[in-house]
Amino acid sequence: MRPVTDIPKNPAADAAPTLPGQAPAGVPFPKTIRSFVRRTGRVTTGQAKAFADLGPQFILNYQPAPLDAAATYGRSAPLILEIGFGMGEATAHIARVRPDDNFLCCEVHEPGVGALLKRLGEQDIHNIRILQHDAVEVLDQMLPEGSLDGIHIFFPDPWHKKKHNKRRLIQSEFVAKLAARLKTGGYIHCATDWQPYAEQMLEVLGAEPLLRNSVSGYAPQPDYRPLTKFENRGLRLGHGVWDLVFHRI
């Protein structure tokens, strides 16, 4: 679940593979925030089958026009946006325990999308739709102001090095964009396992005039967010996890 900033397209990127979060030689830092970085990964046979069998039902085509949520989901229900769902473990769990909500999930990593599709079929989940597209453009073009009841951003890439902090997703400009899309009383829930990023999240979210912290400081982990395998591994190693829940005023 590491939504991060994108790396600009450059022919040099084809010459040698790069690791997630690593810019190819000669490529400058991007000037605009994107919600992801392109990552390589192998789609398994099961994931490929899920794409073929379930993709037409659950994957939406990006279009620069407002989303008709009622038509998309076949019902009117609270709409929750998730930005970057990784392999979809927590996403599927949350959708299953909150069947009365609709979930719009943005992720560009194909193995992750395939894994979530596979979970949807195995667990008989129907209240998720997936957009394989940059969440920033989805916000700008498909989600009008006041259209969301909630936003989930779990474990975005922390960009550990100080010189890379400007690549972090949670920045003032982006948070203002998120807050504007929330209905009054709607919420944004972020979680991170990197304390310096948690501190930045608290500062940036706290400075947004449209948002109010649900508690003083960090929030208790909401019941609907499960501990993933990744998170449990970190906790065993003594890593902390910080949740933040802010509401639109």
Score class of each variant (00 low, 15 high):
R96C: 09
N165K: 14
P144L: 12
Y62N: 04
Q141R: 13
L227P: 00
G86D: 04
H247T: 12
I80E: 01
R129K: 15
M201V: 10
V4F: 10
D140S: 10
I80H: 03
A13L: 11
I128Y: 00
D140W: 01
R168F: 04
E231T: 11
P226K: 06
V37P: 00
E82S: 08
H109M: 07
K9R: 15
D149C: 04
E107K: 05
Q200S: 14
E122V: 10
A50E: 06
S147K: 11
G55Y: 08
G234D: 05
E173M: 00
G234Q: 02
N10C: 11
G146T: 10
E107N: 07
H164A: 07
W159A: 03
F36C: 07
R212M: 07
G146E: 09
W159G: 00
L81Q: 02
D140A: 14
T18A: 12
E122Q: 12
C190E: 03
P156G: 07
F174W: 13
P111D: 04
P11K: 14
F174D: 04
Q221C: 12
R42I: 11
D6L: 13
K166W: 11
K49N: 11
V97Q: 09
D100A: 15
K229Q: 13
F230L: 06
L202M: 11
G114M: 04
G84M: 04
P66M: 08
I94V: 15
H160I: 12
I249S: 14
S35M: 03
A135R: 03
N127Q: 10
V175D: 02
Q141H: 15
D134C: 09
I83R: 00
P222H: 09
V245L: 15
F51K: 04
V241H: 13
A65D: 13
Y73S: 05
L244H: 01
L117S: 05
A65G: 01
D134S: 09
L120P: 05
T45G: 13
T228S: 14
E82Y: 08
E145G: 14
A92V: 01
H109N: 07
G21K: 01
L81Y: 05
T18D: 06
